[in-house]
Design a protein around this nucleic acid. Structure first.
Length: 560
RNA sequence: UGAGCCGUGGUGCAGUGGCAGCACAGAGGACUUUGGAUCCUUUGACCGUGGUUCGAAUCCACGCGGCUCAGCCA
């Protein structure tokens, strides 16, 4: 497995695992990542994957991939396939250890029978409503079900007939006989099996009863010889039940340890609501670049390395916490800064004519591909009399501290010449449509022999050589730090950022990027990191902005 | 008013009886052919009250605050 780039984090789970090894409670480390195939993986799962696979690797152990597919009505093969692709993309490998809880249905059934024979499980005929009443409340104990003391023979018979499909959905359940007065509601005779006449994506119509999570998970861990079953905090309260099944069945007993799931500012990480955004068309799909799904982040241009780095940096603990999305952004910037080729791209073009530059002349200017990586080499960028620069790089009346182009002011065109603005052309509405400039031939390459300095260097693209592209600018999907923070009567949908997507159809990039493959990542100098979207086709380029560069001018301007 | 868990700068994570630290964010500066990157400086925290101790973020007690659980979801 890939070693994480940042320092070795030592957290309470690693400490517990090390202690278990030292004490001899376990002699090896074997974990598992157990997704339910009912949605796409998101950045929160990336944390869990990093914990499960990461800890196993660090201790020289293994990590299984196991689909927790005990609910056929919610689960689909499409999700299984995408989940596997996402985990691989993230950089983790379960080798030949791909399992499904549904692989164990027969064994689980036998164990259920065993529990019945031990007098530890019974078939219950209570309706869902009745069961709720009998369960009691958080502060009051429950009452025993009237079916609690059926004979072993009757239970065996009924359970077999449940399996045979003799009863309709919901007519009966198999329940563990534990303690209806327990302070832990999970122990008040939890349901082990429910009747579901539904086809399963793997077992087809083989089963009419399906085990619930609690009756499947621990035993699946046991079957696979898992040592440390790492899961999120909400299962903490299930641990006594996890332990009860294993102990009562008298089978190999893994240790469950819980940690806090990831929350991210300005982001929703709930499969249910992510699904809702997709189904209602609020986004273009699971892989919309604004989605926190791994497929969305991938399409947005995030690297797996940056996501792993992020996971390493947020750490693992039991505090409910909200990680700052700016840390995630920092992680991609840091990674892409080292790796992304620089290129010049003009998002909002303003035409410039260099009046004293010979018509028809073209010069090939040498440009550095990546100042952070000398091995990336150089390229040629064509320069000519007519160029495009960024609208933002010109102000007719420059505010204080604005160093870029303005009438009479000289700036450097990166890798080319000093130019001075000598005229502004406007249309009938007074809109600036073109700049007239002069250049100093002595400054070729960007340095003035007389030693004079310019305050600013701006990027440009030669108009006749420019490659047209569509650029999609993304902002946070939600306008609020906590998308769930809504006033009475509103929903998280009201916190959607109406400006989360801005499409710029008429951008110009330098010709070196022509024909770039889907997924290629670039830094557009002074602008940000961009990634070629799969919508690019037939020579038409579409870029997604992964993340902007830090912009200290924007800060100055904002504070004014 | 049941059971379980958790409280350290704005955020996340360390510190497990001996000078409270790291990262991100913020502020300031240096440098710069990206207002990028890099480098330097800097603001800022132990939920509260008692107790034990020479010494407490750490151990104990009592409070306070937050989260999870009353699916035949996972």
């Amino acid at each position: 497995m890939i070693p994480e780039p940042t320092s070795q984090p030592t957290d309470f789970i690693r400490a517990a695992v090390a202690e278990d090894l030292k004490s001899g409670r376990y002699t090896r480390v074997h974990t598992r990542f157990p997704p339910e195939p009912n949605g796409y993986l998101h950045i929160g799962h990336a944390k869990a994957i990093a914990v499960d696979f990461g800890i196993a690797a660090e201790f020289g152990g293994q990590c299984n991939l196991r689909f927790d597919d005990t609910n056929p009505v919610k689960e689909e093969q499409e999700y299984v396939d995408m989940i596997m692709a996402d985990i691989r993309w993230l950089g983790f490998d379960w080798e030949d250890r791909l399992y499904y809880a549904s692989d164990y249905f027969e064994q689980l059934y036998e164990w259920a029978v065993q529990l019945i024979k031990k007098g530890k499980a019974y078939v219950c005929d209570l309706t869902p409503d009745e069961m709720r009443e009998y369960r009691g409340t958080l502060t009051e104990p429950g009452k025993d079900s009237p079916y609690r003391n059926r004979s072993v023979e009757e239970n065996l018979d009924l359970f077999a007939r449940m399996r045979a499909g003799e009863f309709p959905d919901g007519a009966r359940t198999l329940r563990a006989k534990i303690d209806m007065a327990s302070g832990n509601i999970n122990l008040r005779d939890p349901v082990m099996y429910r009747i579901l006449h539904a086809a399963h994506h793997r077992t087809g119509d083989q089963w009419r009863i399906y085990p619930l999570y609690d009756f499947a998970h621990g035993q699946s861990d046991s079957i696979e010889g898992i040592t440390h079953s790492l899961c999120s905090l909400e299962y903490e309260i299930h641990r006594p039940l996890y332990d009860w099944y294993l102990d009562t069945l008298e089978i190999y007993h893994p240790r469950q340890i819980e940690f806090a799931r990831l929350n991210l500012s300005y982001t929703l990480l709930s499969k249910r609501r992510l699904l809702q955004l997709v189904k209602e068309g609020r986004v273009r799909g699971w892989d919309d670049p604004r989605m926190p799904t791994l497929s969305g982040l991938r399409r947005r241009g995030y690297t797996p390395e940056s996501i792993r780095d992020f996971c390493a940096r947020i750490g693992v603990a039991k505090n409910d916490s909200v990680a700052d999305v700016t840390l995630l952004e920092h992680c991609v910037r840091e990674d892409l800064n080292k790796r992304a080729a620089r290129v010049m791209g003009v998002l909002k073009p303003l035409k410039v004519v260099i009046e004293n530059y010979p018509e028809g002349q073209v010069e090939e200017m040498e440009a550095i591909n990546n100042p952070e990586d000398a091995s990336a080499g150089t390229r040629k960028a064509p320069f000519s009399r007519e160029l495009y620069i960024e609208q933002d790089d010109f102000r007719e009346t420059p505010p204080p501290k604005y160093y870029r182009l303005s009438p009479g002011r000289e700036v450097r065109l990166r890798y080319a010449y000093f130019v001075k603005c000598v005229g502004v052309v406007k249309d009938a509405n007074g809109q600036i449509v073109e700049l007239r400039c002069t250049y100093d031939p002595a400054t070729r390459g960007g340095d003035a022999p007389d030693g004079r300095k310019v305050k600013s260097t701006i990027h440009w693209v030669s108009a006749p050589h420019a490659v047209q592209a569509e650029v999609r600018l993304y902002d946070r999907l939600f306008a609020k730090e906590n998308p769930d923070d809504v006033p009475e009567g509103k929903t998280f949908l009201d916190n959607l950022n109406p400006n989360s997507l801005e499409v710029l159809p008429m951008c110009f990039v330098e010709p070196s990027v022509k024909g770039a493959a889907h997924g290629s990542r670039y830094q557009f100098e002074r602008s940000g990191y961009f990634c070629v979207d799969p919508d690019s086709a037939n020579g038409k380029l579409v870029f997604n902005r992964t993340v902007g560069l830090k912009d200290s001018w924007a800060k100055v301007e904002k504070s004014r």
